[in-house]
Simulated scan of single mutants.
Amino acid sequence: MIELSGKPFSGQEQRFGGDTLNTALYLSRLVPGLAPSYVTALGEDTYSQHMLKAWQDEGIDTALTVQIPGKLPGMYAIELDEQGERTFHYWRGESAAKALCQQAQFSTIMATLQSYDLVYLTGISLAIFSDEDKHAFLLALESLKASGVKIAVDSNYRPRLWPNAADACEWLGKLYQLSDIALVTAEDEDAMLGMQDSPASIIATRLHSMGVKQVVVKLGSEGAMWSEKGQSGQARTNKVDHVVDTTAAGDSFNAGYLAAWSMGMTMAECCHWGNKLASRVIQHQGAIIPRDQTHYITELMSI
């Protein structure tokens, strides 16, 4: 999506972002040579071409990115308060990504993904589709899982994308049942279930009961709780004195976690690197921080 940041009708900056895109980009930076594939749909307009080029420059494989004539990318604007907390405004009713499952290339893309180790997606990936497309998408994921592909998911619950919380629970429940790894935020899970301040252990137990093997519950400034095979722990994050912008905090955590996972690290170590990257990202404005700030994390991970 196109990102506008700054005060309305004054010097707004144009960037690009989006939850899964942010994770793919940081994952590419953290594991040079990995070349993660990004599956989405764009238009053929100038903005779409600029984004494709930028993603390729970041080492992201765009061979599975579909371009649809006559469609445009979505757009969102971010307003920040003095604590760096965000308010979003979206224009994505007719975005190209919503039509991905309807494209002739969709079945070919899903067949190609059967040779991959892991597919990562979020609840937003599911929410933007029609109910018919949701069914098609979940069937495709079911085939991937049957072929041995690991599936990682972040609910990233956004109420405005769903008719109601019950509908979100139903669809995300189906997604969790296909997932091997869940990287969720406690606040999102509580909002979806109408709860408040649920213990991370309760959230983890619920997700394990759906068949998720590895569960991570992100707890903001308190770090993250991890759970697997009856074992659990908490990875605390270092205090950040000056939070500039919390955009992509969860997305970057997921990238740090999956980068460490790809290196065969334990869940505790994966959470450590997720926290490390997220704490860097929230000290900068926008979803994507300067490349040299990510290289700092990459160098530490390789030690």
Rank of each mutant, 00 (worst) to 15 (best):
H89V: 04
L193F: 13
G123M: 10
W55V: 02
L144I: 15
M192P: 08
M192Y: 04
V212A: 02
M110F: 07
G18L: 05
L113Y: 00
L277C: 08
A152P: 06
F16A: 07
T237G: 12
L172R: 07
L72G: 02
E299F: 07
R15V: 02
A63E: 13
D154N: 02
A99V: 04
L30D: 06
K229F: 11
A278L: 09
G84V: 01
S179T: 10
I288T: 13
L27C: 02
Q231I: 01
R206E: 08
I181T: 12
L178A: 03
S221T: 11
P32G: 05
N22T: 00
V215G: 06
R160E: 07
D251E: 13
F16G: 03
Y176W: 12
A24I: 04
Q67T: 15
V215P: 03
T122W: 00
M1F: 08
L42V: 09
A146T: 13
G18A: 03
D117R: 15
G286L: 05
A182Y: 00
L52P: 09
K134T: 01
I202R: 14
R29C: 05
D167L: 00
L100E: 03
A191C: 13
D133H: 01
A41S: 09
D245P: 12
M225Q: 10
A200I: 07
H295T: 12
K145V: 02
A140S: 15
E3C: 15
H208M: 14
G264W: 03
Q14H: 01
K218F: 07
Q14E: 01
L42F: 15
Q105G: 02
W55T: 03
Q196A: 14
